[in-house]
Structure formats: C-alpha cells, structure tokens
C-alpha cells in the first residue's frame, strides 16, 4: 500500500487545494483521507455523501457522583489543573479537566469515576470524483493526540483493501506535533507545500525533519514562488543540499481561491491555467517517485 501525504508545516499554504487537484486527476484510483481533523476542509471541494459515521472516544474526564460526595476536598487538594469546583457537592470543570484520574484514585467515598469523552466523529464517504474519502471531525477543545488521525488512516487502508486499490492520498494537518507525526508514520511519500515567506523555510525545515525521521520520501512544491526572490532562493538552496526533490513552482495567483469559491478543484475550474497544467504534469511524476521509494 502506498501512502502519499500532502503536508505543509505552516497553515494556509494551499495544501488542501493541491490535494483536491490530485484527487481530481486520480479519480477512482485512490482512496482519500483527510488527516487535518482539527480543521478539515477537503470535503468542501469533494461534496462527499456520508455513508457511515461513528463516534470517536479517546480521552477521559472525571465525573463526580453528587449523592456520594461528602465535600471532603481530597480531590481538590490533588488536582493540578484547577478542574475541581468546591461546593455541595463538588463539581468538575470539564474544559480544564485533563483526565489524569488522580482525583478518582484519592476519593475516599469512590464518588469519582472516569468516563470516556466524546472527542469527535469519523466518516466514510463517497465523493463526486468517484473516490472514497475517510475523514473526521475533532470535538471542540479536544486533545489532538494523533489517535483520530490514526483511525482515519486505518479506515482509509481498509477501504483500499476492500476496493483493491493500492494508493491512499492524504491531506495532512498543519504543524509539527502529534497529529503530523501520526500522519507521516507509515507513509511512503510526502509532498511538502511551502511558500517563500520568512516563516516558510523555517516551517519546511521542521516538517522535513519529521519526514526524514520516519524514512518518508519527500518532494517540495513552492506555492506563490514569485512573491519573494530572496526567500525563494533560500528554499531552493535548502532542498538542494538535503537532496529533496523539487517538484514544481506555482505562481502567486488567485485562481485557487476562485476555484474553491465555486466548489471546484482548480483543474476543473480552468484546465488551461498554468497551475492546472503544472499539477497535471507532476501527479504522474509523484506516482513514479512513490514506486521508487517503495523499492528501496
């Protein structure tokens, strides 16, 4: 199974629009997975029809049985998160509770239990492009531990096996912490979308470091490549030194936004646009690179 991840480090670089364009080119030959579970947007372009939806439980919160509580304050004394509200009975501030379970262990009346927290939902959908999509929605204030990402990837993998497909195309989350690590773990190839801004190179280096650690092959797309010559050169220098494949430069262009506003991928919106043609050229190239990475 090949897993191709589109990732960026920094948010707002255009990774979802690029993922959608590749999804259009791949049609029904891939299974799609949206691992940006904190702010998933891919479904907005693919108009999925949800076929299955499941609740996702991961973290825990403390619950106090008001009848059994004697207001002794033992829980209040041990909580390091200011999550216990004194009173008759004591209560839990659900937003502050981290689910450590210390209070449960010290309550002399056994009035506290830990209960699973509904942390989100995950979905299996069909898309208008002919492919299936595994996606999810993390609950507000939930901890993005990477587990929901892992669930989405597993669902996508099972779908691929069922449909006898060998490629999963993944829209990755921003940042460099847990969810990104879960996304890159087990991946075959990562397409890093960056832009030549002061923060672009910095964030590219950090996300590349994680990809390298997981032995994931990497290529770079520089979006808005013409916006700053100096930073552009610095990015090129970095990827050359590291031996990262330079896949393409895309110009600063509002067409991505216009296409998105119409609910279309850029290739559907203007197939002759330079960006559309560039992306159509590099998709087969990425598939070939994925083959090579796999053989190593």
């Amino acid at each position: 199974m090949k897993e191709i991840v589109i990732i960026s480090g920094k948010g707002g670089t255009g990774k979802t629009s690029i993922t959608a364009a590749f999804a259009y080119l791949a049609k029904g030959s891939v299974v799609l997975a949206d691992c940006d579970v904190d702010a998933s947007d891919l479904h907005l372009l693919l108009k999925p029809e949800i076929k299955r939806s499941e609740n996702f439980y991961s973290s825990q919160v403390a619950v106090i049985d008001g009848v059994a509580c004697t207001s002794c304050g033992a829980c209040y004394d041990v909580c390091h998160f200011d999550a216990i509200i004194p009173g008759t009975p004591y209560k839990i501030d659900l937003i502050s509770c981290e689910g450590c379970g210390y209070c449960e262990k010290v309550c002399p009346e056994k009035a506290i239990t830990m209960k699973a927290n509904l942390d989100g939902q995950w979905f299996i959908s069909t898309t208008r492009l002919g492919s299936h999509l595994a996606h999810a929605r993390l609950g507000i204030g939930a901890e993005n531990s990477g587990k929901l990402v892992s669930v989405v990837k597993n669902v996508a993998k099972q779908l691929a096996q069922m449909l006898k497909l060998d490629t999963i195309l993944i829209d990755g989350p921003p940042g460099i912490s847990c969810p990104v690590i879960s996304t890159l773990s087990g991946a075959t190839f990562a397409v890093i979308v960056t832009e030549p801004t002061v923060s672009g190179l910095h964030d590219l280096k950090r996300v590349y470091e994680i990809a390298r650690r997981f032995r994931v092959g990497t290529g770079v797309i520089i979006n808005k490549a013409d916006i700053n010559k100096n930073n552009y050169n610095k990015i090129r220098e970095f990827i050359d030194i590291q031996g990262i494949k330079h896949l393409a430069d895309l110009p600063y262009d509002t067409t991505f936004t216009k296409a998105m506003t119409e609910g279309k991928t850029i290739i559907e919106y203007t197939p002759d646009n330079i960006i559309s043609r560039t992306l159509a050229n590099i998709w087969p190239q990425i598939l070939r690179l994925t083959e090579n990475t796999k053989k190593q």
């Binding site: 702010a39 907005l44 993390l138 204030g141 901890e143 936004t257 506003t261």
Partner: peptide
C-alpha cells in the same frame, strides 16, 4: 490555530476575541 486545547488555553482569560477569516468556503 485550531479549536483544540492550545487555542482554548490562549483565549480562556481574554476579554475579547478577534476571529480573522477569509471570504472563501
């Protein structure tokens, strides 16, 4: 960014929040 733990910690004690967005889907 986001709607998970870090942003909640950051805005919890704010008096007012400015949400910045783009006019796109």
């Amino acid at each position: 960014p986001g709607t998970s733990c870090p942003v909640i910690e950051a805005v919890k004690k704010a008096d007012f929040v400015i949400l910045i967005t783009e006019p796109t889907p």
